[in-house]
Each structure stands twice: as C-alpha cells, then as structure tokens.
Design a protein around this nucleic acid. Structure first.
Length: 423
RNA sequence: GGAGAGGUGGCCGAGUCGGCUUAAGGCAACGGUUUGCUAAACCGUCGUAGGGCGAAAACUCUACCGGGGGUUCGAAUCCCCCCCUCUCCGCCA
C-alpha cells in the first residue's frame, strides 16, 4: 500500500506507475474521496470539540448541583449531528481504504518500462547449456521410465496438475529441500521456520495477495482460511502488527512450504508435466531490512538464491523484470531462470522481489530506531531459494546420462544415501 | 466442543457502583546537571493515527485502551456480537 499523503502529492507519478504496470487503479476517485474525507473530518472534529466542552461543563454543574437540562439538550443535538456526519465519514473512509489496497507499488527507477516480459532485461547468465552426445529426453519421459513421477496417480487423488513423486523422485525432492535449507542456514545466515500452511484474510491483505488475487487461491470456506500460495505469506506475516527493534535488523528467514495455486485461466500454458502445477514445494527466503540499505540487501538475496544453482552446476540466467511483468506489490524483481535441456526452455525457479515498505505498510510492520527517532516501516523482500518442480525438471534433464539414469553431482550425494545415480 | 481467566501506549502495569485519567506509575530511550572515567543520582522530554495552520519547528483540535455495534450530554469503565491468548475438562493425531 502506498501512503495516502504520497499519492496526494504525487498524483501523476502514481498514475504513470499504474499505466506502466498495466493496472487500472482509480487514482482520481482516491483523490476525490480524500478531499471529501478531510472536509468532513474538519467539521466533525469541530463538532466533537464543542461536545466535549459541553460535557465538561455539565460535569462541573452537576457537582455544583445546578440545572443542566438546557445544556443537555444542546449537547444531545450536537451529538446527533456528529453521529450523522460520522456515518458519512465512515462510508467515504471505507471506500477509500478499499481503493488504496488496489493501488500497485511503484516500480524502482531502474526497472525497464515495458508492457510485458518481452521488455525484461537479461542481467547475466551463469554456466553453459550442457552438451549431449545423444538426444536428451524431457523430464516427463525420464520421470515415467525411471519411476520417479506418476502424474496419472496424482491426478487420481486430487485432479490433474497435482503431481505425485515416487521412489527416487520423492527422495530427490526431499534431498534438494534439505540441501537448500542447509546452505541457507549455515552459509547465508537464515533462520529456519516452519509456519502454518493456511492463512487468514489479514495476512493475505498484508502481503498483497488480497484483494487482487483472490481468485488464484484456494479458500477453505468453513474456516475462511486460504491455502498459502507461497511461504512468503506466513513468514512475512510473522511480524504483522509488530515493532522490531532496529538492532535486530536485518531479520532473515528460510522456510520450506507447499504452495497452492488455482492457476485459474492458466490452462493451455505450460501444461506439460511439472511446469505449472496446483501444488508444489518451495524453499523461500524472506528478509525484513532497514530502509537505508534495502537495495543492497536485495542484491544479496539474489546472490543467496543463485548460489544454489551454482552449487548444483545448473546453467541459468538472471532477468530484470520490466514494469509490465512486475507483480502488484513489487518495486523491483529479478527472475532466476534455469535451463532445461530436455524441453529446451529457461524455467523461472525464483522471483527475487523487493517491496520496499509496500507490504510493511499493509501489514503494519515497523522498526524502532535506536535513540529517539520515530517508528518507521521496514522494507520486506523475498526470493524462492528455490521452487522445487522446475528445479527438478532442470536437474533431471541436465544430469540424464546415456544409460538413462540421472547422475548425482557429488555435493548432493550425502542427501541421497550416497547414491551416484537415480532411477 | 464445555467451563473459567485475560487482552491497556516500544515493554511492564494501575484504573470497572461512567465525569478533576482527553490512560497514573515504572522500565527502556533521548537531552541535560553532577563526576577523573563508567555507573548511580537528580532535572527535563518521550504513545499511535488523522485534521488545521506553517517552508519547517512550534502550536492546536479529534480519534484510539483486542475488533465491531449499542446505551449516555459523557464509556478503558455498562450492555450485545465477534476474534485471540492462557488454564482446566472432553475428543483426537
């Protein structure tokens, strides 16, 4: 959420940000409502001030045992007018609050302007696509032949796009999770947490999924709880409505959670295998940082995610997202895209996004500076570190061998009972 | 699911037969005095949000005691609904 005062003073800037993000937030209405609201507040505050004075006089007269019926009538009158005015104020305020939640974050100046992903800018690439002396297979073929994936039986349980990992496939997923969490906790200084996988509406508003993405999430109606679409939601909300002492910043958390996404409207796109699924596991990194050095922390966050791919020896590239591809809450985002040689595509395995104070304002997460400074909002950011299904795709396709089995890089073997090959 | 207790400013914590509390006091923090230095002591400042007037500071007004309604001239305090935490019981991994 943007600060209302900021919007008031930077109307054109905010409108431009909306256009660049292909967002239709009604800024003019917000400005109008803000105007109405302030006019009413002036009147109402004045009225209430009068009422308070009268009440004080009444109190005094009661003590002196004087007659108060006239004053009481006048006070009653004021109180009723204030009540009516307050109803108006509330209706404007409610509409304003709802509209404010629909205004997207403003892209950082470095973000390339463009309608869609075609305007994304490649920052760098690492490694090189593997070369094969045979025709490489895709993960679907490998998964089936090696008994590592059984998508048919997954569909039997919950429908298509709910994948089932089997045998070495299941073990590989678990190994990768353990490997990644170990790197992040021991080498990058993240604290591990395992949060609830359901979240309430306040959390969803806090991180920006609501109101815009309501239709993309699973809702449990009996409890009015959502299945989390990413670990970002529960972990960022760890500090919702809290004040963090400045000396505790930055706070860095790593978690592994399942992620649930309806992918409504996404059918027909990336429909094969593990490319796009309703449920997947993801190791997620979340940081709460001081506003002064948040962009430096963002670069480090990107580095922390990249290290995983480097240690696994997987070729990838880093994309700086254009305004039109940037998420609603994001100010700047790098995507990590890993190369999958079987399907010959770069697959997004991490979005490394900084939100500045956008989420912190929504979720009311502040820090208290040392000394006498005022409370201020922290900056939040997160990155996948990494998302499992596409990582597994790239892993299986990159390390397939001529004999069909999947070769295991030495660094991962201790997480796989020492196995040199899978399948 | 049943019974009970509780939810007050960054933290702790008073305050319920409604009105000199438009939230006491303490801690922490900040400024100062004293001191060879540190500590202690003492003095002062110090909640959040919004509005008005300002370039800004200052000043001033209003709201806020888990959330939402209600009674009243006036509600932290009385009434109703909801949420959360803790304890005990029941049920169950």
């Amino acid at each position: 959420m943007l600060d209302l005062k900021f919007i008031r003073n930077n109307v054109e800037l905010v409108k431009k940000a909306c256009r660049n993000k292909n967002d239709k937030a009604d800024i003019d209405r917000i400005i109008a409502l803000d105007q109405y609201r302030r006019e009413i507040i002036q009147e109402l505050d004045h009225l209430r001030g009068q009422g308070n004075k009268l009440s004080a006089m009444i109190s005094e007269m009661i003590r002196k045992e004087e007659d108060i019926s006239d004053l009481k009538a006048e006070a009653k009158n004021i109180s009723e007018r204030a009540k009516v005015l307050n109803e108006d104020l509330k209706s404007y305020q409610t509409e304003l609050d709802q509209l404010l939640l629909t205004v997207p974050n403003i892209p950082h100046p470095e973000v390339p302007v463009g309608r869609d992903e075609s305007a994304n800018r490649e920052i760098r690439s690492w490694g090189a696509p593997p070369e094969f002396d045979f025709e490489p297979r895709d993960h679907l073929w490998l998964g089936e032949v090696l008994g590592m994936l059984d998508l048919g039986r997954g569909a039997k349980i919950a429908g298509s796009f709910f994948p089932l990992y089997t045998n070495d496939g299941a073990q590989l997923k678990r190994a990768l999770v353990n490997f990644m969490i170990e790197i992040h906790t021991t080498e990058h200084g993240y604290r591990e947490v395992s949060p609830p996988f359901l979240s309430n509406r306040d959390c969803m508003v806090g991180t920006g999924q609501l109101p815009k993405l309501a239709n993309d999430m699973y809702l449990i109606p009996t409890e009015d709880l959502f299945l989390i679409p990413t670990g970002e939601v529960p972990v960022t909300n760890l500090y919702r409505e809290e004040v963090i002492p400045e000396e505790q910043l930055p706070l860095k958390f790593v978690t592994c959670t399942p992620c649930f996404r309806r992918e409504a409207g996404a059918y027909g796109k990336d429909t094969r295998g593990l490319m796009r699924v309703h449920q997947f596991d993801k190791v997620e990194l979340v940081k709460f940082v001081h506003p002064e050095n948040s962009y430096q922390e963002h670069e480090e966050l990107l580095h922390d995610a990249e290290v995983i791919l480097q240690k696994l020896g997987l070729h990838y590239r880093v994309q700086l997202l254009a305004t039109g591809d940037l998420s609603f809450a994001g100010a700047k985002c790098y995507d990590l895209e890993v190369w999958a040689p079987g399907i010959r595509k770069y697959l997004e395995v991490s979005s490394c996004t900084i939100f500045e104070d956008f989420q912190a304002r929504r979720a009311n997460i502040k820090f208290k500076p040392r000394g006498s400074g005022k409370l201020d909002y922290v900056h939040t950011m997160n990155a996948s570190g990494l998302a499992l299904p596409r990582l597994i795709i790239a892993f299986m396709e990159t390390y397939q061998s001529a004999v069909g089995k999947i070769w295991v890089p030495p660094i991962l073997r201790s997480f796989l009972n020492g196995k040199e090959f899978l399948g």
